[in-house]
């Protein structure tokens, strides 16, 4: 079993660093915030095309939601296919599982190129937002 402890390096002055987390195998078993997320808030993040961005590429069991994408796997059954910890790593940094993936790393600020000034040093989602999305995805059992 491989355990990797990670934490953000060199956050800009005055900006909070990313929280540290431990990768165990193909998962991050522990909550980034130390608390479980809120599935209702997570649902709103997943559906928001400026915040979660998820439905630009993914489809899901959301018949009322128009203009979903199919560049990425359908989210139906995501919570049955993957454990909470596996979902968390897929959101935090899917490139650790597949370096060629087009899935953005939602909680990584290092190793990026030519990031627009408004987003430099910021992850796509905060630790609390990651936990909310994980909690919502875990509800997608079929």
């Amino acid at each position: 079993m491989v355990v990797l402890a990670c934490s953000a390096a060199a956050a800009a002055p005055g900006e909070p660093a990313l929280r540290s987390f431990a990768i165990v195998g193909d998962a991050i078993p522990d909550s980034l915030t130390g608390a479980p997320g809120d599935a209702a808030r997570g649902r709103a993040i997943v559906f928001n095309r400026q915040v979660g961005l998820c439905l630009l590429c993914h489809s899901g069991p959301f018949p009322d939601e128009k203009f979903q994408g199919n560049l990425a796997p359908d989210l139906s059954g995501a919570g049955a296919r993957s454990s909470i910890g596996q979902l968390r790593l897929r959101l935090v940094d899917a490139s650790r599982l597949n370096p060629a993936t087009i899935m953005p790393s939602y909680y990584r600020t290092e190793g990026l190129t030519r990031v627009a000034p408004a987003f430099v040093g910021k992850p796509i989602l905060t630790a609390a937002q990651i936990e909310d999305v994980v909690a919502f995805l875990a509800t997608l059992q079929e």
Partner: peptide, 28 residues
Amino acid sequence: ERRQGQLDLSCASCHDDNWGKKLAGAPV
């Protein structure tokens, strides 16, 4: 082919590797 930006995508990610699929309901 260079990955860029906070989303870490290249032009090729969409237009070479995923053309014809749908981004937000519209074909790439």
